[in-house]
Amino acid sequence: MGEAIVVTSGKGGVGKTTTTANIGTALALQGKKVCLVDTDIGLRNLDVVMGLENRIIYDLVDVAEGRCRLNQALVKDKRFDELYMLPAAQTKDKTSVTPEQVKDIILELKKEYEYILIDCPAGIEHGFRNAIAGADKAIVVTTPEHAAVRDADRIIGLLEQSHVESPKLVVNRIRPGLVKSGDMLDIEDILQVLNIDLIGIVPDDELVIKAANSGEPTVMNPDSSAAIAYRNIARRILGDAVPLMQLDRKPGAFKKFKKFFGMA
């Protein structure tokens, strides 16, 4: 029986989909059998980030309404044999499936896959309830901004009232320079308010944007600092004790020089 982890945040644009795609891919890199589920019906993105949009035939709503079998709707990743994705529908809205239907689908997937990562839509309404219905655990993504932390706090409150086990925190898009100058919340500030276990910190990295646009998860690129962060998170999910990344590490002068000349 696999484990279903919902990736949620409350606020939009903090990197739920990117986190789902990258942690999922990182778990697949570790040789795990993984299925990604997009529950953001009407605003699906996971397929775009994964570069699998053109392979979609059926979607979550089709499965829920019995128009196809679950296996028919799963899209196999082009890079890994053991990585699959269940896309959301783009033409419907959140209310076209019920939490019970999603729960049944997740239960079915848990028989087949070791990890099921559920990409949750922004907000706390029907879509959120759909996303957490089948989840055993939760990863809450936030960025070092007051608004994102506030919403993460709200989400944690709602998760604590639900059946989902104690949520873990990912702080995304940290800019070490800004934190150092005191213009950005640091990890300690965030943890003091949210008071949940930290499972990873991800530095802000332009390569993530580039990767998302080319449909290739960042985690595949060993040069990206965000990639290392996501791989670390995946290892922590698997139970390894990996120390937190040192953020103020500056690239050496030589590396900068090489970069300047396009050698790195």
């Binding site: 919403d151 709200r154 409150g157």
Partner: peptide, 8 residues
């Protein structure tokens, strides 16, 4: 006792 979170 507990944590009173945003919205509660």
């Amino acid at each position: 006792s507990g944590i009173l979170r945003s919205g509660q």
